[in-house]
Design a protein around this nucleic acid. Structure first.
Lengths: 145, 145
DNA sequence: CTAAAGATGTATTATGAATGCATCTTTATG
DNA sequence: CATAAAGATGCATTCATAATACATCTTTAG
């Protein structure tokens, strides 16, 4: 059981920006800091922009920043927004072929467990992920130099 | 976010056997009933046998049955036993390369959420998945004929 | 001894995430 | 107005690994 890098990277981008406050950051810079694919980040940033998590500014001197304060960005909400497929077991999805589905309780049980998972994530915001006391260390670790 | 078919099929096998009581079933028969790969089931049965969930009997007239009553087979326990990789995010695994890991709270938050997920599954047993009142319907749906 | 069952190891296929590449659009600035 | 620096977008490719197939071995009832 894993979530996609998409969602993982989404959270990393948001953490990066949370530490930068209102200063604009570029995709290039974030990709270098985390040493991950610039192209991949590009698409994630797009999606985060479309979903309203980011302000993206095109053109020269453009860049990214958060569209809300870290305390207002909920982790559970983000995972629900970004993780495309929360089909834990086949019978939770649309292409299910399992013959016992009509009488099987598996779907109900896993749906409940998924809710418990997401509800726990709902208890946290981006601010919890980048605790203020670690701000300096974060910035140091993310220095691309 | 998905669990593997391995785990999904494991649960299906156990449900099948739960409905058969002490009667032996064969892998071939289960594969036909669910219309899934016999070879794949083979390995899952092996693993379930090794972990003590099944009694497997080789040779002619051999087959499989549960090694415990359905009420004693816990869903959470099974998922922990069978699902190989519970590395939800990169930083939870051994091949993590994320530079901010030392100060990032992502791992802690996702670990907590994973616990909540598994704890919910812990509340159910195989008996809950194959409620007695559905026994007849189950057997009908699983009839390979 | 044979047939029917599970056990085991290796190879292959299929799927989808991850990544790369090429091109377009936007915008500040000289 | 031209240019450079930024994000936006679509298509192609790579890669990882789950899923499946194949081949062979072992066990055991009759």
């Amino acid at each position: 059981m894993q979530i996609t890098r998409y969602t993982d990277y989404s959270l990393r981008i948001l953490m990066y920006l949370a530490n930068k406050g209102d200063t604009l950051s570029t995709i290039k810079e974030i990709a270098q800091s985390y040493q991950i694919s610039r192209n991949h980040l590009m698409k994630i940033v797009q999606q985060l922009g479309n979903k309203g998590y980011l302000v993206t500014i095109r053109g020269k001197n453009g860049g990214l920043k958060l569209n809300a304060s870290p305390g207002d960005i909920n982790v559970g909400r983000l995972v629900r927004d970004i993780e495309q497929d929360l089909t834990l077991v086949e019978c939770m999805g649309s292409s299910n072929t399992c013959v016992i589905t009509p009488v099987c309780q598996l779907k109900a049980v896993f749906s409940e467990a998924l809710q418990a998972f997401l509800s726990k994530l709902d208890e946290y915001t981006l601010a919890d992920l980048v605790a203020l006391k670690h701000r300096a260390a974060f910035i140091q670790l993310l220095d691309p130099g």
